[in-house]
Every structure is written in C-alpha cells, then in structure tokens.
C-alpha cells in the first residue's frame, strides 16, 4: 500500500478512535474543551511517533533475534511508561514552554491504549520502519481530529436541553455514534475498506 493510501486509511477510513475503538478513555475524559483537546492530541502525536520508532527497533533487533517475542507485552508497556516519564522530566528541565502546554497530559498517556495498540498493530501488519512511522503519525492525527470535533460538539451540548438520564457520558456516546456514522461514509473512499 502506498504511503499516501496508508495515511488516508489510518486518518479517516480506519480512524483510530471512531472505527478501531482505541483511546476511548481520553476521548471522553478530556474532550469537554477545545483547548485541552488540542493539547492532548498534540501530546499523543508526539508520544505515539516516538514510541512507535522505539518499539519497532526493539522488536526487530532485540525481541526477534533473541526469540523473546512472548515478552512483547511486558517490554512495550514498560518502554512506553518510561518514555512518558522521561519526556515529562526532559520537557520540565529543557523546554518549559512545551511542558506547560503538554505537561498535564503526559502522565495520562501511559494508560492510553491507542499508543500500545498502534505499537501492536504495526507488528501485526508487518510494517517497515517508514510505514510504521507514517501509520503512527496519521493515526495520531486521526485521534486529534476526532477529539477536537467531539470537543466542539460537547461545548455546544452544555446548554442544550437533554433528558436527565442521558446527561454527561451517555449523550457523548450518542454524539460519538453519529460521528462514527459520518466516518463510516469514508469506507470505500479510494478503494479502502474498513
């Protein structure tokens, strides 16, 4: 698959949140304001790309040669957790501007299943390094897109009359259902299927 098709597939057709159901906790947790949604999305782009590069090299050059594939779950989660910790310390010391913008979202990212999910999907689809990086960046962009869209809708929902039982999360789920329905329209786009 060409890289451009891979980008469209991961960004729209198989959108990581709405079609693959990865990263739902931050999708509903930090989507009540557009600014926080953008901050979270940016952090995810950054961490997802870095963690994909690291896990790809680890898997190819350490886990496969030493026949340790069964350790991949343990190794990947530890790598991601330490990467996030390291980035937090690094930003705090070296780039305080970026830290104040993304800092509060970084600890939340360790338990974002999209990061680990993309690392596994890269391996299961047998991607090379360049394809893995493109897949990670476009998945993260898709996450940012979905997050900003739902944040915009939820800001407007605050003043809407909603039945008591559906206030809060349930109405957000219904919103997400309608968004997923819209994204379903992309399937078949440029010959890409779900």
């Amino acid at each position: 698959m060409s890289l451009f098709l891979l980008f469209i597939s991961a960004f729209l057709v198989n959108n990581i949140v709405l079609m693959r159901f990865l990263g739902l906790c931050p999708f509903f947790g930090v989507s009540s304001k557009i600014e926080t949604a953008i901050g979270m999305g940016m952090s995810v782009i950054f961490v997802m790309t870095l963690s994909t590069i690291i896990t790809w090299f680890l898997y190819r050059y350490i886990l496969i040669p030493f026949d340790l594939i069964y350790l991949r779950t343990v190794v990947f989660i530890l790598v991601i957790a330490s990467l996030v910790q390291f980035l937090e310390l690094f930003f705090k010391k070296q780039i305080p501007g970026l830290y104040s913008a993304l800092g509060i979202f970084l600890p939340l990212i360790t338990t974002n299943c999209a990061i680990l999910g993309v690392a596994f999907l890269n391996i299961d689809s047998d991607f090379g390094l360049i394809s893995s990086i493109v897949f990670a960046i476009s998945s993260a962009l898709g996450f940012l897109l979905a997050l900003v869209l739902i944040a915009g809708i939820r800001e407007r929902l605050e003043n809407a009359p909603i039945p008591d039982a559906l206030k809060g999360l349930p109405i957000s789920f219904i919103t997400a259902a309608l968004m997923a329905l819209a994204f379903l329209g992309f399937s078949g786009f440029m010959g890409l299927s779900l």
Partner: peptide
C-alpha cells in the same frame, strides 16, 4: 447491520448507560 458496525457500539453503550442512570434515579 449498523449495530455490528462501530456506530452501533457507541449507540448500545449510550442506551445501556442511560437506562442504568434512569433506574438509579
């Protein structure tokens, strides 16, 4: 078929959660 596609998942959990809230209230 919508119900076994991704939007159906969101819809099912929304209604289940709404029902649960309704019973609790």
């Amino acid at each position: 078929i919508l119900m076994i596609l991704p939007p159906g998942g969101f819809l099912a959990i929304a209604l289940l959660m709404g029902l649960f809230n309704h019973i609790r209230m």
